[in-house]
Design a protein around this nucleic acid. Structure first.
Lengths: 109, 109
DNA sequence: TGCCTACATATAGAGAGCCTACATGTAGAC
DNA sequence: GTCTACATGTAGGCTCTCTATATGTAGGCA
């Protein structure tokens, strides 16, 4: 799937996978892949900058950890992030409803 | 609604409103507004360049007409455009399914 | 007569955000 | 010793949408 279509919805996806538990970047990519049934393969060059952007605006916080000799930066939703997620869900609902409506064929009007 | 979220889906919408009948740019904008129940207000600076782009790649053809002293450029789907529309619908179905799945809360897993 | 709104098309410049490609390094399997 | 999986990050480019502006006609109204 062309993730270019995700433009503008990436934030929602990232916030959503972080809702239940904190994760590091690599794990987030895997979570997106699993939850999409393998359809979504988001490149690292998209995820890492996006996570930093979300942290910059206050929706995420991060801390470094070392697990098995590897350094991980684990991201966690802030209160603001949870609010943003709720907003994104609502926006997605509206948006997808409108697009679906317009895309639905109306052969016999 | 923020039409920036439409990035990547605008083509699908334009092709879809042109499916049943040829329309000119201004009428396309009104059609999008009506079909969305007033939620979508796409600026002219988005629609006109997009139509030209779709014509350039062969999904649309256009011809000038004068109606009531005003010049209109009426766009019509080509065969390639119909095929593209089918592809866009399928892509939207996949895309929205994946996003909805990931955004759906999973409180009790 | 002059102004305003609706109709109608178009371009320039800016900005956002996603992409590809590359850089760097560890751990463990073979 | 080499390869794959794990793990993070930056640089530069590209596409598409946005805002703002320009141009012009038709018709209503004062």
């Amino acid at each position: 799937m062309n993730t270019d279509a995700l433009r503008g919805h990436m934030d929602a996806l990232l916030l959503s996978v972080l809702e239940d538990e904190p994760l590091h970047g690599y794990a987030i990519i895997e979570a997106l892949q699993q939850r999409s049934g393998g359809a979504l393969s988001v490149p690292t060059g998209t995820v890492y900058p996006a996570l930093r952007r979300l942290e910059r605006v206050g929706h995420l916080t991060s801390e470094w950890a070392t697990v098995g000799g590897r350094k991980r930066r684990t991201y966690r939703l802030t209160r603001s992030g949870r609010a943003a997620l709720a907003g994104e869900r609502s926006a997605w609902s509206d948006f997808s409803g409108v697009v679906t409506k317009i895309l639905t064929p109306r052969s016999q009007p």
